[in-house]
Design a protein around this nucleic acid. Structure first.
Lengths: 203, 203, 203, 203
DNA sequence: CATGAATGAGGGTTCATTCAT
DNA sequence: TATGAATGAACCCTCATTCAT
């Protein structure tokens, strides 16, 4: 009972994710998903109360899962620069392992972000927390943490986006060192670093 | 006729842009736009052959207009680093002047980018061209130009996105110096620069 | 414009009323109505925002129209017994002229009555008002006006219902004198009437 | 099995009756009923072959049960006027004891009456038989028995309906004497009664 | 007996688009 | 040009019913 239900649910999620990414959410009908899974339309409603809810759950799982993974990654390191690097590498590995999920996240974020509640695990907050802490502890140059977070995330996400559109062919994992180095430069050395490095970004 | 037609068309575009950004493209009906302009539904078809076409024209105008503006900006400077800075400042100024347009571009890009033909003016190509040329001429550290383009653009675009969601309050113009500085760091010094700067990004 | 719209609306109402009575409201689809009018399904929504609203408007028009007619009828007479008689005769005439409307009212009342707002014209209130006034002015035997209203209305409505089911063949108009006489008996003589008549109903 | 089956069936009927009255038959799904009883949807089909059948059996049981009760009541008395009074009192007592059943009967009658076959016990026929016999035996004024039946029944049913809608607060039992008195007046004295009473209704 | 996943027809409704006026 | 009635396909969803477990 639970077994068959679970399996069906997983197949629905996989099919929905793929179709949403391939055709867009609005262009993908509940019937398309059902047909892809080999089910009738009505059957989907045993597993999800509505299409909106299906989209939201897919988004939420990926969104929160990513945040938790990033936080886990950050927790494995003690210095800010190493934390960032771990997160960058981790993200790249996740992307290569399941790019569909990230393309979906990228695709629907504008519609779903407003449903994200303050208490939820949130990758943006995860990154921001590492950066803000690094600034406070003097390992990262002081600056507006939101701006720096935006820049660091944009770096990564736009690279992933370029991959989606075929502008970049290499796997993200191969680019991880370069992305990490770019992050390092943007973050700059904190006050506790030895002098002589590049000046910080203030903003 | 042309005069009144032009004016009507401008009002349609303005209303459509606003509604598309506020509610999403699919959630905005032809009737919503017509009502916002004070027209009946059928009347819109005097000006645009279809909703898809309206979206595409809006996208294309903004997309090509941005590319042309960026190229114009780049042409005002002779050194790569100055070109980049001019483009960053120019983009920020444009964003502050008409953020709706950029939000629209950000919103619909995933659906429209595939319609962009090679010959069209393209902001990504504009940025990439400046970067590639800077590399060839030794003003920018050699690296994969696509990767560097992605990183530079991501920097800017994600910051703009953060603004959209209220994470960042300052106008983009105020952030332009910081964004330009970040770009400079990512691009690194070329082989013709004096030694002692940070190492280049290779990727 | 208005002309064609009005005409279509009238045809929709007539078809809907007939189908609702023939098959029941829930068993009648929007498509059935559209087909009966020779329209496509979507076209109905230019005239009515929803099926529920169509039902409600039909009910409301009939309900309020009946109330107004009854009040008009009552206003033509000065003595309570004559008022009642006028209302009974009037109702019977209306029924014979448009039995579909009354069958519809009878059919959907249980679902629509809760939407009736206190301020609305209401046939029950109209009848009750005449009865209550007759009691106050001593022309009708004092009793619980709600109970008496129920009895008087039930008299009439159940007769109409019997007609619907074919138990009674004669037109309501032919039965009006008998119905009026029955009402008279139920209402009884007021304190101002001469003695010797039947005793009043107290309840 | 029979024992548990019987109990389950009773719980299903009680839940169905309540939900049908509260929400309407069409608005009440098989799932609502199942959930109210603590069963799964499919399980109901062990007890009833279809929803229509469930509705019909509920109606039939109440309809025939009422007829039988009325006939039993009528059989306890020998004079027509006493018979009517007994039926009125009996109906009122039944209503107060199980108003849900009568509300259900009132609610679904328009849809179910056409399934009533001539041979079935039928409260309308029961009442009509008493009235017709009373006329034949000279205890009730001669008139169209169907009309008189309609009037008598309407008297009672509309009062019950008013109770449903809160227009009348007292229990039906308390109103029984008034209702009986009203019936007496409508029926009038037969030819065997002493002179001087009110004239008969002819119709 | 009971479960709950699945069916599939049908529900009301929306919407881009057309066209007579 | 502009209107708004009309189209018709497609949408998401509900629901009575069936059936393997």
């Amino acid at each position: 009972m639970s077994e068959a239900g679970e399996a069906t649910r997983a197949r629905i999620e996989a099919a929905a994710l793929r179709l949403f990414v391939e055709q867009g959410v609005d262009a993908t009908g509940i019937r398309d998903i059902a047909a892809a899974v080999g089910l009738s339309d009505g059957a989907l409603y045993r597993h999800y109360p509505s299409k909106d809810e299906l989209v939201w759950r897919l988004f939420r799982e990926g969104f929160e899962g990513l945040a938790e993974e990033l936080e886990h990654l950050a927790a494995t390191e003690r210095r800010a620069s190493r934390r960032i690097e771990a997160m960058v590498r981790g993200f790249c590995a996740l992307y290569d392992a399941d790019s569909l999920l990230f393309r979906f996240l990228l695709l629907v974020q504008h519609g779903q972000l407003q449903r994200v509640k303050p208490g939820m695990a949130n990758p943006v907050e995860s990154v921001r927390a590492v950066i803000a802490r690094g600034m406070k502890e003097g390992e990262i140059a002081s600056a507006d943490p939101d701006l720096v977070t935006a820049m660091v995330m944009g770096l990564i996400l736009q690279t992933a986006t370029f991959k989606v559109y075929g502008r970049i062919a290499k796997p993200m994992t191969a680019l991880a060192p370069s992305l990490a180095e770019a992050c390092r430069r943007i973050l700059g050395p904190g006050s506790r670093e030895k002098a002589g490095g590049p000046r910080k970004i203030k903003a």
